[in-house]
Amino acid sequence: MAVAIRELDGRIPVAQALLFRSIIGLAFVGCIIQLAGKTYLFKTSKPVLHSVRNLFHFAGQYGWFLGIGLLPLAEVFALEFTVPIWTILIAALFLGEAITWRKVAAVLLGLLGVAVIVRPGIEIIDTAALIVLASAMCYAISHSCTKVMALTEKPLTILFYMCLVQLPVGLVLSLAVWVWPVGIEWLWIVVIGLTALSAHFCLTKAMQHAEVGIVVTLDFIRLPMIGLVGVLLYQEQLEITLLLGGGLMLLGNMLNIKTDKAG
């Protein structure tokens, strides 16, 4: 999905890309549910929670895309990866999940790994940075809502309502800046739609088997993976800091996973 977003950068407005993602997702998930004969998955007992989750999720995505246009990419990633901190705090306050020393160590090692890789400067704190930080908080609220819903809702139901709620929001924001995709841009839009669905499906399934704090800490692995994608596809330089930071993240994740097994 990151590759597709990069290929569409500057061509398709953010809200419109999110709208197309919702349309593709709604059609894809709807067809799967219908063909499987499980139409009961269209029903939910938590419509309000679905709405809250997806409004915060949309806001988080929009702020993240906006931040990419306002800040150096390194600073955006550094701020985005504060999500596990906010998620662990929210889960402790509202879901009753315990804050253990292993969770704290996992978060700190992950953040240290991010700092090693992106080396954010002191000028990181400005208005644009606060937008991305607010985006990270929105993601944390969304993740916590997903954990609550994963206890009773099926992953396909969560995905269906994600697309259903976010579609009209994306449509309203897209009308004033509409640009029709051309050529290969349609392919990248489809890639965004399908990879967003698969990522959210895996996230929801993971939250059915582990605490939300553990799941989002694993997200740290995404940064060194994105770095490797840059090396392989965009001829970006492979630096030793990427390997060192990735190693710190992996150590933190191993601590957190050990907590889950021990519990």
Rank of each mutant, 00 (worst) to 15 (best):
L93V: 13
A2I: 11
K38L: 09
G67P: 06
T100E: 13
E185V: 06
L164E: 00
E153Y: 02
A15M: 10
P155E: 02
I122M: 05
R222D: 07
K258N: 09
I184G: 01
G63L: 03
Q16Y: 11
E75K: 06
V3I: 10
A36Y: 00
A91T: 07
G246Y: 00
A74T: 05
L194F: 09
L93H: 13
K147C: 05
Q16F: 14
S22W: 02
V216A: 01
R11S: 15
G230H: 11
V191N: 01
G183K: 05
I226W: 04
M162W: 03
K147M: 06
I125N: 01
R11D: 12
Q16A: 12
G10C: 15
L151S: 08
V148P: 05
A106E: 06
L228E: 10
I124N: 01
I122K: 00
W188H: 06
L35K: 10
A134S: 12
T87E: 05
M207I: 15
L233V: 14
T152V: 04
V116N: 04
E7Q: 12
C31V: 12
L70H: 00
L109I: 15
A206I: 06
A129F: 00
V52I: 14
I85M: 14
P181R: 09
G213A: 04
E80G: 13
L95M: 10
Y40V: 12
V177C: 12
P47Y: 02
V215T: 04
L218W: 02
G69K: 10
R102N: 14
L156H: 03
L151E: 07
T127V: 08
I158M: 11
G245I: 01
T259A: 07
I117H: 00
M254S: 05
E185K: 00
L133P: 06
I124R: 00
V216N: 07
L130D: 08
L233T: 13
R102I: 08
M162G: 10
M249E: 07
G25P: 00
S144R: 03
F42L: 13
G245Y: 01
L187M: 06
A128E: 03
W101H: 12
I141W: 02
G96K: 11
L175D: 02
A98Y: 14
T127R: 14
L130V: 12
